[in-house]
């Protein structure tokens, strides 16, 4: 958090929702074909945080997920691997062992995911446990209740404290955009998270109805861009939840490319939090290679 410490949190600019919608219409009208489509589909695969975050998660379930992460589709061994596997803290050690020497990171949610409704000390313990268990990345949730009460300093300080507890792990800050209101609030929460030291900002837990959307992501990317213009420091972005098909994922890439530029088109700076996206992308890749539309029976489910 050192580099952020001396920057005063600026007043967030207003956001016009209809204007954002107009922008998204332009993004969605981009036609992604041929080699660009192939390139994009492979890029999407490389950016996926393959995720299981269920009360019913078991050791074996996590192992199976890791198996999928390592070999997405047997017939195409040259495809890139996913970026990370995302699990609860209790499963970090399991995933870490399964993914040893694969280059695939282990991400862990923490800070009383998904509600965040507990004390700061407990949240910090949660983070430290995940990091000590080997997590490369921590996905924290902000205190939406505090945010909605207007306690922005609390939210800021909490993120800064979690960042410190992360040590070398990269911190993704989940805003849970579906709970914090309109695009103006989302912009404000993005700024708080970025200035408090987030390495990534992330839309959603995936645990409520409203998950990632293109307009929400657009606003968060604008916050990242404004910060970059001001400081020259890159911050990553992770839309999560609701992105289950390849076409939509490619539109996210267009949005990233046109808002932030090619430097962000890398798993270092952009991720998809998704569980079923990978197979749809694989189907599209198979379609591109074979020319035939595909059936789910030919793509492994884990």
């Amino acid at each position: 958090m050192d580099k952020h410490k001396f920057l005063e949190l600026p007043k967030s600019p207003p956001v016009d929702q209809v204007g954002v919608g107009d922008r998204i219409n332009r993004v969605q009208s981009r036609s992604i074909k041929k080699s660009t489509k192939m390139e994009g589909l492979e890029m999407v695969l490389s950016m996926i945080d393959l995720t299981t975050l269920e009360g019913q998660d078991t050791v074996n379930k996590v192992r199976q997920l890791c198996a999928k992460a390592k070999r997405l589709h047997e017939p195409y061994p040259d495809l890139p691997a996913v970026a990370a596997v995302c699990v609860y803290p209790s499963m970090v050690a399991v995933a870490k062992k399964e993914l040893k020497n694969t280059g695939i990171n282990v991400a862990s949610v923490a800070t009383a995911f998904p509600s965040g409704q507990t004390l700061l000390d407990i949240k910090l313990d949660d983070v430290r446990f995940a990091v000590d268990s080997g997590a490369d990345e921590i996905d924290m949730v902000i205190s939406r209740g505090k945010f909605l009460q207007g306690e922005y300093n609390y939210v800021f300080d909490e993120i800064a404290a979690v960042k410190e507890a992360c040590n070398k792990a990269r911190l993704k800050v989940i805003l849970e955009t579906g709970e914090i209101g309109n695009l103006d609030s989302i912009r404000k929460a993005s700024d708080i998270a970025i200035y408090a030291g987030a390495d990534f900002i992330k839309t959603s837990t995936g645990k409520i109805g409203k998950a990632a959307t293109l307009p929400v992501t657009c606003v968060m990317l604008e916050a990242i861009r404004d910060y970059y213009f001001k400081t020259g420091t890159q911050v990553g972005m992770k839309p999560a939840g609701g992105i289950s098909n390849a076409k939509l994922a490619l539109q996210y890439l267009v949005l990233v490319k046109e808002t932030l530029g090619d430097a962000w088109l890398d798993k270092q700076w952009f991720r998809f939090g998704a569980s079923s996206l990978a197979n749809d992308v694989l189907k599209q890749i198979a379609k591109q290679k074979s020319g035939s539309y595909q059936s789910g029976d030919y793509f492994s489910i884990d």
């Binding site: 016009d16 929702q17 209809v18 204007g19 919608g21 579906g178 309109n182 695009l183 109805g209 409203k210 959307t213 307009p215 929400v216």
Partner: peptide, 13 residues
């Protein structure tokens, strides 16, 4: 002038 559309049935943002 734009009219914000929030809270329309189930469409989210």
């Amino acid at each position: 002038h734009p009219i914000e559309v929030i809270g329309a049935s189930g469409s989210g943002y």
